[in-house]
Write a protein that binds this DNA or RNA. Structure first.
Length: 936
RNA sequence: UCCUCGGUAGCUCAAUUGGCAGAGCGUCCGGCUGUUAACCGGUUGGUUGCAGGUUCGAGUCCUGCCCGAGGAGCCA
């Protein structure tokens, strides 16, 4: 039997045998714990490349492992079959999307089968088949009944290349491009259907019931973007309410102007006649900007004054109202209070347009500064400062004073005592004061809304260079020395805020919000960045939205018993950018189910993420109730099978779906729960994000780059087991990495060595009985390997798992030439090696197992258990350090106690050499590891 | 600019949670072999991104910075 390892012969043979034996048919079995292992649904692009193998084969290994651990494992597969590529193929090559898709699936099935994975093919689901999308449509009707689906017309993201609107989640990047085709999207007013995912925003922020990777949780959390604050009602001079949302009600006293979004409904009413022309021009410009591809990231603030003022409810101040495109109509209330002292955007805007900037929060550092221009102080000022212990620098006759707030309190009267009549100076930062020579009470002025003009006027009177400044802050900004103190957005003690001044930063927001509620001018409020999910697509190849627009009855649902609304097979695919369904009269024109009059069918189809939001439910009993009429009280899958298999125990897939599929499917499950169809809150309990396999050049694989690796080639050269093992060995699964054709060589050699160890005889003749120690060593290696492999596969550390198997095999290669060959311990070692390999390299493991134990499949065996006693090291290397440097080593019994170890260490001549002439201060013992002698 | 995750030998990665910095590939040397993309043994390899700190002891913990990847982008 010393034949060669021949994967090309072994692999197809076992795949056929497993199928004939029905080894991977999934059946509910109440006597066994179930384990639903799911990998993300592949899209029917037509070709399986190594990018598909990368997530699938380690998943298969993990699923097989669970099965050997006694679980009834469900590992289904199917196809995400709707979508644009099929329709584009139809337009380009005159092939029907259905034909194109199904022939792709045919090819992909063959390629996926070549992995030798334990797929439950008898549960395969294909989303574009009517018996599947019948239920997708059923979900739509249920959502509509629950008030979770609504029809709307608004400016939405539109991809001009795909000729369809997109959900906000499907617009990516700085240039806002289409997630699928990379074309920058535009804004367009298109009627569409949306799902109220925002209703579940708070619940979607709760990850307490799922074990998902932190990056996904962070991305979803950011995407949902919950922020707490207050809604505060400002009023126009005519008494119109202008509510604003703010996260910083503690800065209300620093609001020196308001900004409305250019689209804000009150703009027209509040605009004065003098400003109307400019305002309308700006609105037009802003609207045009939306439609033009936003390639330029125009950071420069723009905006115009509309001629009206608003009243700040906290202090009755009149503040000007502006419009600017940095305020979005789609977030909050479309209007903001601008606090330029503590908001960067408002600060930039105020500086550019000469609006006052008032600090109302003490800065985080207790630093105040004062700049004293040459010639503004009487003789002796510098000496007086020095005497008062106030630090300063002198450059070119000017003084630069940097001090703490307490010192600033001493500095202010001192400066006033020395200031010349024709001059002034100021203190900024931890204190704010303008110091003039006058004997009047207001010789030292704080900085407040009303004081801005007063101070500026006085400064302008004294210094002509200030003449062109609009505000005090603009003047101060001209002095480089002050800049880092003029603006900050930290929390801190409130200042310049009337009775709230000196409220500490940690309670300021809450105190002010409570007060607003008492006054009736504001209330606690929460805002989200998340938008409702736009599910309409103006295309053919998707599940038709089962709705009808009737001129008499309005929007009417298609009755449940009429589902599915079938895609017409005879649609025409023309490169017009118009949906073929719109042009198909037989599809479009229908009778109203309510009044029987002429009506029109909705021609939009659903986002394919609808299909994939519930496919893991479909898998338990695909095409449930096929051919039957269904009603609102049905369940889209066999409820008994669902109770057994659901929810998904382990999900694997790429992180690129973090804010799309993975968010949508959580939303779906919460709605299903509210429908009473499931009794859990989350679709997948555990999630693992594998990384991406890259081309040899380290770049993402793509046809245009020509770096795509076709697994078919490598399978025919090295076998599926080698490709599987190599993909696992390449590096940590979550990181991915480049394909390296040299790396697979190492794996191939490993498989040959294993074959040789397991199948071939020892080359040397046994001449005697093995020593007890040799047997113990072999068993220790065996049990340590079982432990390592088990722990690694549990943690999805496939790369180190393969490395452990390699190490064990290398050990066996050597042991084979000793007396342990052929002993009971040897057989135990080899059997365990084969069992440990079975999940990752199923074919070679099966072949080797059958040669040793003809009968039931290796994949029906139990996973080996390790014996902690046998795995334990008996002898360890005790490292001896002097002052942290290794000076000696001893082979000692693993259980050596502290006293013995210390004695041994101190007796060492090498240690003695290094502590000669020094005093031993301390001897540290780390059990089982080392002794460190501290001496000086 | 903000958030998250990374940075260890030429390359790809380990290092049992604070205790000897190691493997595979590659390199080089040797052996074996009538040599198919073969096999065996050995060799070479390090400022653990940088600078501090804590500690008897730091790749590992803390602080700051540099570089890379991903995400968010005027989100009030």
């Amino acid at each position: 039997m010393a034949d060669k390892y021949d994967p090309q012969e072994i692999e197809p043979r076992w795949q056929k045998q497993w199928e004939a034996d029905g080894l991977y048919i999934a059946r509910e079995d109440p006597d066994k714990p179930k384990w639903y292992f799911l990998t993300m649904l592949p899209y029917t692009s037509g070709d399986v490349h190594v990018g598909h193998w990368y997530p699938m084969t380690p998943s298969d290994a993990a699923a097989r492992y669970k099965r050997m651990r006694g679980y009834n494992v469900f590992f289904p597969i199917g196809f995400d079959a709707f979508g644009l590529p099929a329709e584009n193929a139809a337009i380009k090559r005159d092939i029907h999307p259905y034909i194109w898709t199904m022939s792709n699936i045919e090819n992909m099935r063959r390629q996926i089968r070549s992995m030798g994975a334990m797929w439950a093919w008898d549960h395969e689901a294909i989303t574009c088949l009517p018996e599947y999308y019948k239920w997708t449509q059923w979900f739509f009707l249920k959502f509509y009944e629950m008030g979770l689906a609504y029809w709307d017309t608004a400016l939405v993201d539109f991809c001009p290349h795909c000729d369809t609107v997109l959900a906000r989640e499907q617009v990516w990047g700085e240039d806002r491009h289409c997630e699928r085709c990379k074309t920058p999207v535009i804004k367009k007013n298109v009627p569409h259907w949306k799902f109220r995912i925002t209703k579940y925003a708070d619940e979607l922020l709760d990850f307490s019931q799922i074990d998902w990777p932190q990056p996904v949780r962070v991305m979803q959390t950011n995407w949902i973007g919950r922020s707490e604050g207050a809604e505060v009602v400002f009023t126009s001079e005519d008494g119109d309410d202008i509510p604003v949302f703010t996260t910083r009600p503690d800065t209300l006293w620093g609001a020196t102007f308001m900004v409305l979004s250019p689209e804000h409904p009150l703009v027209a009413k509040l605009t004065s006649e003098e400003c109307r022309e400019a305002v309308e021009a700006y609105q037009a410009q802003a609207a045009r900007l939306d439609e033009i591809a936003r390639t330029a990231v125009d950071k420069e603030k723009t905006g115009v004054f509309i001629g009206g003022c608003a009243i700040n409810p906290v202090n009755g101040e009149r503040i000007p109202i502006w419009i600017a495109d940095y305020v979005l109509m789609t977030y909050g209330t479309g209007a903001i209070m601008a606090v330029p002292g503590h908001d960067k955007r408002d600060f930039e805007f105020a500086l550019k347009f000469g609006l006052p900037i008032i600090p109302v929060i003490a800065p985080p550092q207790d630093v105040a500064k004062s700049f004293v221009k040459a010639g503004t102080m009487r003789e002796g000022f510098a000496a007086a400062l020095a005497e008062a212990g106030i630090p300063f620098e002198e450059r070119d006759g000017a003084l630069y004073v940097t001090m703490s707030g307490d010192l600033a309190d001493r500095y202010i009267p001192l400066a006033q005592a020395y200031i010349r009549p024709d001059s002034w100076t100021e203190v900024v930062g931890a204190r704010w004061a303008f110091i003039f020579e006058d004997a009047f009470e207001d010789a030292v002025l704080p900085l407040g809304v009303r004081d801005d003009e007063v101070i500026l006027a006085r400064c302008q009177a004294l210094e002509s260079a200030v003449g062109d400044k609009h505000t005090v802050m603009e003047m101060l900004y001209g002095q480089e020395f002050y800049r880092d103190l003029l603006y900050h957005d930290a929390y801190g003690t409130m200042i310049h805020s009337k009775e709230f001044s000196s409220t500490p930063g940690d309670v300021a927001v809450q105190k002010v919000t409570e007060w607003l509620e008492q006054q009736g001018t504001g209330k606690f409020a929460v805002n989200y960045r998340l938008r409702d999910w736009l599910i309409s697509r103006q295309r053919y190849w998707g599940a038709p939205i089962p709705m009808i627009h009737c001129p008499e009855c309005g929007i009417v649902s298609v009755p449940y018993e009429d589902l599915p609304v079938l895609l017409p097979e005879d649609a025409e695919f023309l490169p017009t950018g118009e949906s073929p369904l719109k042009l198909h009269e037989g599809f479009r024109y229908v009778r109203c189910p309510q009044c029987g009059g002429d009506a029109e069918r909705e021609t939009d189809t659903m986002d394919t993420f609808m299909c994939s939001s519930w496919y893991h439910y479909a898998y338990v009993s695909p095409y449930w109730k096929a051919g039957e009429k269904i009603g609102p009280d049905d369940t889209p899958w066999d409820p008994d099978a669902g109770r057994y298999w659901l929810p998904v125990d382990q999900y694997t897939g790429g992180i690129e779906h973090a804010t799309m599929h993975l968010l949508y499917t959580r939303f779906f499950t919460k709605v299903l729960r509210d429908m009473g169809l499931v009794d859990f809150d989350e679709p997948m309990e555990r999630l693992f994000n594998q990384g991406m396999i890259l081309g040899e050049d380290g770049e993402k694989m793509s046809k245009s780059r020509g770096n795509v690796i076709a697994p078919d080639d490598w399978v025919s050269r090295y076998g599926a087991d080698a490709v599987r093992a190599y993909l696992m060995f390449i590096g940590p699964w979550e990181e991915g990495g480049p394909w390296n054709p040299q790396g697979i060589e190492g794996v191939r050699r490993f498989l040959h060595r294993v074959w040789s160890v397991v199948v071939e005889e020892s080359a040397s003749q046994r001449i005697g009985e093995p020593a007890e120690k040799e047997i113990a060593d072999l068993r220790r290696q065996t049990h340590q390997t079982i432990k390592k492999v088990t722990e690694d596969i549990e943690a999805f550390k496939f790369n180190t798992m393969i490395a452990a198997l390699m190490g064990f095999d290398n050990y066996l290669m050597k042991a084979r030439e000793t007396e342990v060959f052929g002993t009971e311990a040897w057989d135990e070692a080899v059997d365990n090696l084969v069992l440990l390999m079975a999940p990752s390299m199923p074919h070679i493991a099966e072949e080797m197992w059958q040669r040793r134990h003809p009968g039931p499949s290796v994949h029906l065996q139990s996973w080996p258990k390790w014996d902690a006693e046998l795995a334990k090291e008996e002898i360890i290397t005790l490292v001896v350090q002097v002052n942290g440097k290794v000076r000696d080593r001893f082979q000692v019994a693993a259980g050596i106690d502290e006293a013995a170890a210390k004695e041994l260490a101190l007796a060492s001549p090498r240690v003695q050499k290094h502590i000669a002439g020094k005093t031993v201060r301390k001897v540290i013992f780390a059990a089982g590891k080392l002794v460190n002698v501290v001496a000086n």
